[in-house]
Simulated scan of single mutants.
Amino acid sequence: MTLAQARENCAEQMKFVSQGLDPRKMEAVKSVLVDHIDNPTINDCIEYWFKNYCLPRRDKPAEIKLRITSCLRTLWAKQYVSIMDKTHFSAMFKAMNDKSIEKGRGKGFSFNAIIEIRSALRFCVRQGFIDNTQFEALRPGDFASDYDVREHYLSIQECKLIWAHVDELNITDRNKIILRCAMVFGCRISELCSAKKTDFDLKAMLFTTQRENTKGALHSIIRPIPNDLLADLQYMKEQSPSFKHMFPNRDGDYPANSSSVSQISKACHQEIEGVAPFRMHDLRRTISTHLTDAGCPLQFTEKLLGHKMKGVLAIYNKSPMLDGLTEWVNRWVIMLKGE
């Protein structure tokens, strides 16, 4: 330590002494490394939240951050948070919605972006990175509209038509099998895209979606595989033997691109007469609706869709309910085949 450094250190210690504090009892506090910026900007807050919360704890953190930054105008990103009041935060949120509309984003995009940036600011307040809470009184719904709740599901007749004409569609074999799996399992498309070959046990006839590949990464999902899918799944396993992924990307052993897979539904309603436009996610609503109408107990449809059980069941009932699920999955395949 140089003499100048000693003088500086002494001055820092004397600040504690002047407050009646013993510097020797401050070691724990001084040992903590704190991310500190004298006057953090909105962008500083986003980066702090991304590094310390979003990156280690959220699914697809880069996409979440991009949602915010793609709506945030540069002049607001550079703004010091300490001098902003409700009027300024209101103007920033309104500008985020306006930019989203200018870019042609769908309804609800900016609504979720505002939710996320409020979450980032709240985290910064909790961690002591900022102390301005003026934004708390504002609500996303004051500036943007949420996505409309979709109610669409396919009729049984539409399901039968698709099942009967899958092989005739002008799509890859991979996408044909993904379509059949989505129709039978009612799983999210992302669960199929990220699935490994080892997730499909064709001897035990079980498809396991690993916890890290589920929405929220809350729990793994086990679904029975019906006989009608065995040949297709065996075929996929034999393709690209060195690959780990069951439905790999065309560029290599990477998960299939969910945005391209989502276009499968477009081929269905364009090429199969009698099938109205739909989204792949509508297949989840479809299987839940028709199985319930057929008398399937709610706990089986919820297990099949991978929803978290509620109440006491969520805490104590960890059974995969495979016997009941197998029965109803097989019944659903019979309904799809029109037998």
Rank of each mutant, 00 (worst) to 15 (best):
R7Q: 14
E8W: 10
C10Q: 12
C10L: 14
E12I: 09
Q13W: 07
Q13A: 15
Q13K: 12
K15P: 04
K15H: 08
K15T: 10
F16P: 00
V17M: 11
V17S: 13
S18R: 11
S18T: 06
Q19R: 12
Q19D: 12
Q19G: 01
Q19E: 15
Q19P: 01
G20R: 06
L21R: 11
L21Q: 12
D22A: 01
P23W: 02
P23F: 05
K25S: 05
M26Y: 02
E27I: 09
V29W: 02
K30E: 02
K30L: 09
V32Y: 05
D35H: 07
D35Q: 07
D35R: 05
H36R: 08
I37T: 12
I42E: 08
N43S: 08
D44F: 14
D44L: 04
E47N: 14
K51L: 07
N52P: 03
N52D: 01
Y53N: 14
P56S: 07
R57F: 14
K60S: 07
A62L: 10
A62Y: 10
I64C: 12
I64K: 14
I64M: 11
I64L: 15
I64W: 07
K65M: 15
K65I: 06
L66K: 15
R67N: 14
I68G: 01
I68C: 06
T69F: 01
T69R: 05
C71G: 06
T74Q: 09
T74R: 13
L75A: 12
L75S: 11
A77M: 05
K78T: 09
K78F: 00
K78C: 02
S82N: 06
D85F: 05
D85Q: 06
D85Y: 08
D85V: 07
K86Y: 03
K86G: 10
H88M: 09
F89Y: 12
M92G: 01
M92D: 03
F93T: 00
F93H: 02
A95N: 13
N97V: 02
N97I: 00
N97D: 15
D98H: 08
K99A: 10
S100A: 15
S100E: 03
G104V: 03
R105A: 02
G106L: 02
K107M: 09
K107R: 15
F111H: 15
N112M: 13
I114C: 07
I114P: 05
I115D: 11
E116P: 00
I117V: 15
R118A: 01
A120N: 05
